[in-house]
């Protein structure tokens, strides 16, 4: 059990490096395969990078699918749904944290019960809801979950963060004449910033990666989102690995960039 003490700094650094490399492997392999030139047989011997390296696969994706349009749609969905999610889930979490005990308990139980509903139970019947609202074949159907804060889980995250803020702060703000919204915006939210960043990142990943909703609720191709592009390409040739990996890399870029930008906040999350 010596390994749990990590007394020696160099050994610890080495272990950390190994762990990090291990977790980077899938991305590294995806990147490496995406650089393999078309038409050259895939190697059957282990090597990190292909003998010849090419970026042509990235160019080919654009020729085969209207990737820019798909990506813009994805971006539009994420850019609308994520702020909406933040607003609605933090409002709900804030109200839950400050309401008196019986209501609070009821709301917690409700949110927990809702968390247990498997998403597969909702696919087909949500269709009727969207149809009634006239949201089918529109990006509204993809943004729709944001109207409920995307997931009760995010509401609970905010609830927990707001509860950790000393009640005296809220009371002080109230005595100063601040309204509910002002207290939320000026006192509570800034103190729960790591949680907000976490919810923003998680919901971005969710909306960016959602591949079932567009398949179920959209019919016009010009509204398709990025994950559909991956399926179109896969349908064309399941064995064109360099092309598929290039598409995978493209689809992964935005979340990674966002993550690296938000990383300082995110690593600190949970500490406050």
């Amino acid at each position: 059990m010596k390994c749990f003490s990590f007394k020696d700094n160099r050994i610890r650094l080495l272990l950390r490096l190994l762990a990090a490399l291990l977790f980077l492997l899938p991305v590294v392999w995806m990147l490496a395969a995406s650089l393999h030139p078309r038409g050259v047989p895939l190697p059957q011997a282990l090597r990190l990078l292909p003998e010849q390296i090419t970026l042509a696969n990235y160019g080919r994706i654009w020729q085969l699918v209207p990737l820019t349009r798909f990506a813009l749609n994805s971006l539009l969905v994420a850019a609308t749904a994520v702020p909406l999610t933040l607003l609605i889930s933090s409002w709900a979490g804030y109200a839950m944290a400050l309401l008196p005990h019986p209501s609070q308990r009821r709301l917690l139980l409700l949110s927990l019960a809702l968390l247990m509903v498997p998403s597969i139970a909702l696919w087909s019947t949500r269709f009727f809801v969207y149809k009634t609202l006239g949201w089918t074949d529109s990006l509204l159907a993809l943004i729709a979950p944001a109207w409920m804060g995307t997931s009760p889980f995010y509401v609970l995250m905010f609830y927990r963060a707001f509860r950790r803020i000393p009640a005296a702060l809220y009371d002080a703000a109230r005595l100063d004449g601040a309204g509910v919204l002002q207290t939320w915006g000026l006192v509570a939210l800034p103190l729960a910033r790591p949680t907000a960043v976490g919810v923003a990142l998680l919901s971005t990943i969710f909306y960016w990666g959602d591949f079932l909703s567009p398949l179920l609720y959209l019919s016009s191709e010009r509204r398709y989102t990025l994950p559909i592009a991956l399926q179109i390409l896969q349908q064309m040739d399941r064995s064109d690995w360099p092309l598929l990996m290039a598409a995978g890399v493209v689809a992964t870029t935005l979340p990674v960039v966002l993550f690296l930008l938000l990383q300082p906040y995110f690593a600190r999350m949970g500490r406050e």
Partner: peptide, 25 residues
């Protein structure tokens, strides 16, 4: 207006939901 579904299995799923909702192509 063309609706293009990439794969055959998705196509079936779409047909089912579309007809169920009364909004088939």
């Amino acid at each position: 207006e063309i609706t293009h579904i990439p794969s055959a299995s998705d196509y079936r799923k779409r047909l089912a939901t579309d007809f169920a909702a009364g909004t088939p192509a």
